[in-house]
Amino acid sequence: MTHRTDTPSQSGIARKMLTSNKRQWTENVTGRVIATVCAALLIIVVLSITYFIASKGLSTFFVNGISITEFLSQVKWDPEGEPAVYGVFPFILGSFLVTTLAALIAAPLGIGAAIFMIELYPNFGKKVLKPVIELLVGIPSVVYGYVGLTLLVPFIREQFDVLGFSLLAGGLVLALMILPTITSVAADAISAVPQDLRNASLALGATRWQTIWNVVLHSSLPGCLTAIVLGMARAFGEALAVQMVIGNTTKLPGSLLDPISTLTSGITLNMGNTIQGTPYNNALWSMALLLLLMSFVFIMILRIIGRKGRVNK
């Protein structure tokens, strides 16, 4: 104890200030530790996902001795043939094609809808379009797949006299699925454009559309790009909805109406039917690793866009 000559009142104040409350201290530290552990868990999860998927996915090349370049570039996928051929190029191509198609359809629609709801009719946008978009986000992917299967595939079949299961069907289903993502992210970017910019343009005699096109879209470009890339990332990783409508053949498609396969559909269909540790099974894990790497790539693109956007402002 400190040797102070305290008056009664002084000691009261000093006692309150100087005695530490063990219980409070413990509680405070425990709370902090719990919160930190929860946060650290996120890192652990990401690291272990990367580690486990990578170690399984790489064993195709290091255990089964399949060449990486052949794996990526071979157009023939025949894991049960003699000799087995593991060429995942058709899957990779399918994933990219279907993602690009979805983005081509959804980007103009999504950004258009975002302009509509921020610039043209903000009231209607907020009251009707925004809830509609949020509901679309909430619809599970198997439901999109189911609708694609029962509505879209037969429609394409009848219109074009083909199988129906096709790149086109996959692209359309995915476009619908990523439309809400693109719309809401683009809407955020557009509404972040300062009103002064719009006023300045309008004051110079520009029409509303000229203002939107030259000023608003120009200054929200990084945000709109972010929206599109986020949508593409979602499309690239989507499994069941796509798998249900694309037909899943490993032949290279000749047109929009041909069936295709994607990395996700290949994994979904075969992972349950192959035996752990076989080269076939490992090849599927390598495809999963490709998916994982692609999502890292998407994140990097997003970061680069984000950085560019900040520099421009």
Binding site: S9, Q10, I13, A14, M17, L18, T19, S20
Partner: peptide, 12 residues
């Protein structure tokens, strides 16, 4: 405060 430096380390 009442002779105790409130910024000292032993103040709770």
């Amino acid at each position: 405060v009442d002779g105790t430096d409130i910024n000292s380390a032993d103040v709770n």
